[in-house]
Amino acid sequence: MATAAAPDRIPSVARGAAAVPGPRERAGDRLFRLGVAAFALLILALTAALAVMLAVESRGTWRSFGFSFLWSTEWDPIGGKFGALPFLYGTLVSSALALLIAVPLGVGSAIFLAELAPRRVSDAVSFAIELLAAVPSVILGLMGIFLLVPWVRAAEPFLTRWLGWLPLFRGAPYGIGLLAAGLILSLMILPYIAAISREVLLTVPRPLKEGLYALGATRWEVVRGVSLPYARSGILGAIFLALGRALGETMAVTMVIGNTPQISASLFSPAYTMSAVIANELAEASSPDHLSALVAIGLTLFGLTVVVNGLARLLIRRLEARG
């Protein structure tokens, strides 16, 4: 019996033994292990260097403005006044708008693909959705400029007529602005939400679902009663991961948001995001202060995405630990 059980243990022993090298590790093996460890360390160093670089290159801005940099609204590179609030506002609002559209669509797709659709259909549609994630963002931006923006411009007067009692839907119909940016961002994050939510839903144990089927539940009742509650933290993780993408997305947004540093209650008005201002102004930064302020915006964006992505991984891992 002992010999029959052994093969199962061997792989883990092989790996475990490698982690704690024995006294008789050969010279060549030692060299090899240290060699690949150096590359692993390089990645650690690279990530640390990125964070340090952002902090060092932006120290001038933090020194002269402090944290008021984050809630000051004036951005005047020539006059030497730098405040990041309009960019923070544009990034957060366009990302929130994108989530508002992409979450129902993505989670709905995932439910259909994981729980309801026949296997063949599910595989084909999943592949199409994954390909959507591979479309370069500059191409989506191109579609945005010439296709989406005219549509939005045509639709805005109707939105004002029906929903104009909300300040969100008032203002001149430019086409370019927060609404167009949110729409195009939602297309970019939709595949992440759909694909990861589908994977998470596929991990729901069959016996749990069969238990409810045995009580005579319909498929939708099983989805609502078992699958969604079980997968909740994973789906939330997928949404946070998508949010991380949306916050940092640059090209497509830059091309349709209008690049105007202002804070306006209307979704129709042009705005600006953190990534867009870096993309537009860094190559022609007018002074060291300007450069430093742009890097400070980069650091803020970096911090934001690290927190959001960390939360996402935590939520997804919590599900894996249980499964």
């Binding site: 670089m53 997305e249 980069g298 970096f302 992505n309 960390g310």
Partner: peptide
């Protein structure tokens, strides 16, 4: 952890680096 963090860094920030 570093690789996952790096993977989530917006590409524009990588450009800054």
């Amino acid at each position: 952890y570093a690789a996952d963090t790096l993977n989530g860094v917006p590409s524009i920030v990588v450009g800054l680096f």
